[in-house]
């Protein structure tokens, strides 16, 4: 069953803390992450199914899956001096692939891919101890043509139904966003107004409307990673978002959000 749903920024500067950053802003995001960690401890999940956009890390141009599931016993990665490794909930990961394929989603699965920092940054701050087994769910966000927002929403709806039929207590977590433009002239001028309008929409429970946004709109708004959120939104339906924080830094709209669900 699905017991919790969260979205978290994974801005690497939150972890690396270079001198370019506003210390107080970073610490406010850390405080929001700490709230998520306390909620995870209270929700007692058997697994965290985490949806992250691949930062051309698990997959390069040898094969670019739109949607993929990591099905292994553990998963590891590195970022700078950080070396991390998490157990995988293999039975649940396998069930998601099998049930997803059965429902018409041509999922890729992998048993050998590094774990991107998009997974690690939020988990560094929010993972309860001992570690809850993970199910990494990949969405192609950086290599066009990416899956459409509509397709992401549909995959999320299927995920919600599949998880709803399972006995395990599962938390869904989307990693990514909000507006940022790495590697472009827009890096220092994200679309904060777009983010705020979006958070208002989500707080009002109008998440369905995001399934209709276009790839062009996401690209223009620096929100290509929002596909991970849109996937999660398919699973949480019309639940209203509780925005823990929205912290616009000079390069990122950092948001931490929970969708409180009726089940406990």
């Amino acid at each position: 069953m699905l017991v919790g749903a969260f979205a978290c920024a994974h801005t690497p500067q939150l972890l690396a803390r270079p001198e370019t950053e506003d210390r107080e802003l970073v610490l406010r995001v850390h405080a929001a992450f700490a709230r998520v960690k306390r909620r995870l401890e209270a929700l007692r999940p058997d697994a965290i199914a985490m949806i992250a956009g691949d930062h051309i890390e698990a997959f390069f141009l040898s094969a670019v899956p739109a949607l993929a599931v990591y099905v292994g016993t553990e998963c590891a990665g590195t970022f700078g001096r950080y070396r991390y490794r998490f157990p995988i909930h293999e039975p649940l990961a396998r069930a998601l692939v099998e049930a997803g394929i059965e429902r018409g989603f041509d999922l890729v699965y992998t048993q050998d891919a590094p774990l991107d920092y998009a997974f690690y940054v939020p988990l560094h701050f929010t993972m309860p101890e001992p570690s809850v087994p993970l199910v990494p769910l990949h969405v192609n966000v950086y290599l066009p043509p990416q899956p459409t927002p509509k397709r992401c929403y549909e995959w999320g709806r299927a995920l919600g139904e599949i998880l709803g039929s399972r006995s395990e207590r599962v938390v869904l977590m989307a990693s990514g966003g909000m507006s940022h433009f790495p590697g472009t002239d827009r890096y220092a001028s994200p679309e904060f107004d777009y983010d705020r309008r979006l958070l208002d929409l989500l707080s009002a429970g109008r998440s369905r409307e995001l399934a209709a946004v276009t790839a062009e709109e996401l690209d223009r708004a620096g929100n290509i990673e929002l596909r991970t959120w849109i996937t999660l939104l398919g699973a949480v339906g019309d639940a209203k978002a509780d925005v823990y924080c929205y912290e616009p830094s000079w390069h990122h709209g950092n948001a931490v959000v929970e969708w409180p669900l009726a089940v406990t």
Partner: peptide, 25 residues
Amino acid sequence: AHPYLVFMADLRLRMEREAVTFEYF
């Protein structure tokens, strides 16, 4: 070149060359 790859390749090189500027607080 993909802009994200250019960005992150440069960042990873700088993280090694200028490690002192990271974990500043």
